[in-house]
């Protein structure tokens, strides 16, 4: 499994004087096999970082290295087998007219992999779905089952790094726990490197070894999980965010 190194990542939308600097300058490193969290309020650029790493957004500055190789220098095929992403909304991330079989078969065909039936069945087993689900369509699945299919789709190419863009925020609380358990279980078994975006500090506390607090496109502070318990953040904003979250947990 590979480490991720993000150096001076920046992206601006628009041209000339009207250009808006969405991410001024972001740098962080993720060790191999680590789960790294990105937290922050809405619009702080968490998801944008993931979209830059996965090259869904292309016009960014800086370098992103996965396992020492820049993502820009990788071929498409190699990049897809190195980094995959799970999206926030399982209702929007599966093609409404593709069966689970098509969803899982497409990447195998694009990458010309062998033992396709076996791989599809393995992917479904990995995410805890019965093999009979291959012929289901998304509208025949619940939200949690859809998210499991989305995770299976990301895993079927055996990537090293998995980008998780709020993988549970669109789900029921009970289903959230299932998906989080599945993800941490997969990491324990296969040693994937995760970058997890969330605005829920409880999720981060459960999943991540370290996390970065972001505000308006900048990383305010990188903290250990332990910092959540006694709120040992040094930066004002990070401390405020954590204490607000703790206060909210007590209230609810």
């Amino acid at each position: 499994m590979k480490s991720v190194e993000v150096t001076n990542l920046g992206i601006a939308l628009g041209h000339g004087a009207k250009a808006v600097n969405i991410l001024p300058d972001v740098s962080f490193t993720v060790e191999q096999g680590e789960c790294f969290g990105l937290v922050g309020e809405s619009g702080s650029g968490k998801s944008t970082v993931l979209r830059c790493i996965s090259l869904l957004l292309e016009h960014w500055r800086g370098t992103v290295k996965i396992g020492g190789a820049s993502v820009r220098d990788m071929g498409v095929i190699e990049r897809c087998r190195t980094v995959q992403m799970v999206f926030q909304d399982p209702y929007g991330s599966l093609h409404p007219r593709h069966s689970v079989r098509t969803v899982l078969y497409e990447p195998l065909r694009i990458h010309n992999l062998d033992r396709r039936q076996e791989r599809m069945e393995q992917a479904l087993r990995d995410v805890g779905l019965p093999i009979s689900f291959l012929d289901r369509f998304p509208h025949q699945l619940s939200g949690g089952q859809r998210q499991r299919v989305a995770i299976a789709r990301a895993l079927i190419l055996e990537p090293d790094v998995l980008l998780l863009d709020e993988p549970t925020s669109a789900l029921d609380v009970s289903v959230q726990a299932e998906i989080l358990n599945l993800l941490s279980d997969l990491r324990a078994r296969r040693g994937y490197t995760y970058i997890l975006v969330s605005h829920d500090l409880a999720v981060v506390d459960y999943m991540c070894d370290r996390f970065a607090v972001m505000r308006s496109g900048e990383i305010v502070e990188v903290l250990d999980r332990a910092a959540l318990e006694n709120n040992s953040a040094t930066h004002d904003y990070a401390r405020e965010l954590i204490s607000a979250s703790i206060a909210y947990d007590r209230a609810s």
Binding site: S54, L56, M85, Q88, G92, S93, P107, L157
Partner: peptide, 13 residues
């Protein structure tokens, strides 16, 4: 710009 198109792009389509 939907997620399933983004997912297809990430698979190298």
């Amino acid at each position: 710009s939907s997620d399933y198109i983004a997912a297809a792009r990430l698979q190298g389509a």
